[in-house]
């Protein structure tokens, strides 16, 4: 039964991803081009920050996506540990570098935004520190999943790390409310109306959707690769005559 599962699900996933990927990639490129145009030529400058507000169009969506990506890793970790879902481990391997990249973009753009606006590239306040921790959690996940000779053990260890690290997500989100920070409180995700004028909010949300497309594209593509890679490894093991 478990064996059937293992064969059926990745194959179905693979068929699905092959059908979806070309269109998704094309749509992502188109939307990102449109968003770049909006970010630079349609969106107005901010009343206080001037042109540097354009950095927000990268910074904020990558922060969202890196947090969403970690929640995804945690969900995949749970489904691996509890239900032993065969695809979960492969997808977690595929998704971790994607999330790490978005976290890196968030940190770098934030730093380049902080210098002209706050007067510093970096401070150790609760928001910035917890975001840096998220980046390191991703790196830990990547390292741990590749640390063992048997990939299954690495998958298991990385899944446990993902579940422990998920506690960092609410800390990142609420750090600006719980503690005094240099970073300002949330502008978009608050209970009342967003504190961003529509002319800036709309490009921001479009950029978020486009980068989400890129995120999904990358995760699907890399999961497909992981499925093929696992098959390749199994074939190699069988050729050596090892009882797989």
């Amino acid at each position: 039964m478990a064996d059937l599962h293992f064969l059926a699900n990745p194959a179905r996933f693979r068929r699905f991803s092959q059908r979806v990927l070309p269109g998704l990639g094309f749509a992502t490129v188109l939307m990102l081009c449109a968003c770049l145009y909006m970010a630079f030529f349609v969106a107005p400058a901010d009343y206080q920050q001037g042109q540097t507000v354009r950095i927000m169009f990268l910074h904020v969506p990558s922060a969202w996506l890196s947090m969403m990506g970690y929640a995804l890793l945690a969900g995949l970790g749970a489904s691996l540990l509890v239900w032993r879902h065969p695809l979960a481990a492969l997808m977690a391997r595929a998704a971790a570098p994607v999330g790490a990249s978005f976290a890196a973009v968030c940190l770098l753009t934030g730093s380049l935004w902080g210098r002209p606006m706050w007067g510093t590239y970096w401070v150790w306040d609760a928001r910035l520190t917890s975001m840096l921790l998220l980046f390191f959690l991703y790196l830990g996940h990547i390292a741990l999943s590749r640390a063992y000779d048997e990939p299954e053990r690495g998958d298991r260890a990385a899944a446990i790390l993902a579940l422990i690290g998920v506690i960092n997500l609410p800390i990142i989100k609420f750090s600006v409310d719980w503690w005094n920070t240099l970073h300002q409180p949330a502008s978009v995700t608050r209970l009342d109306a967003p504190a961003i004028h529509n002319s800036i909010l709309v490009p921001l949300l479009w950029m978020a959707v486009s980068l989400l497309f890129l995120f999904v594209f990358l995760v699907l593509l890399r999961t497909e690769t992981e499925i093929d890679r696992r098959r390749l490894e199994n074939a190699a093991a069988q050729e050596e005559g090892a009882p797989a």
């Binding site: 042109q51 950095i55 910074h59 990249s101 978005f102 890196a104």
Partner: peptide, 28 residues
């Protein structure tokens, strides 16, 4: 006056995310 910071952040994002796309495609 802050064009350098703005362009640098877009460049950084382009290098990181574009690099990941290329690496992923070539791995596949």
């Amino acid at each position: 006056n802050h064009a350098a910071f703005i362009l640098a952040s877009y460049l950084a994002a382009f290098v990181i995310l574009g690099g990941l796309v290329i690496a992923s495609l070539s791995a596949r």
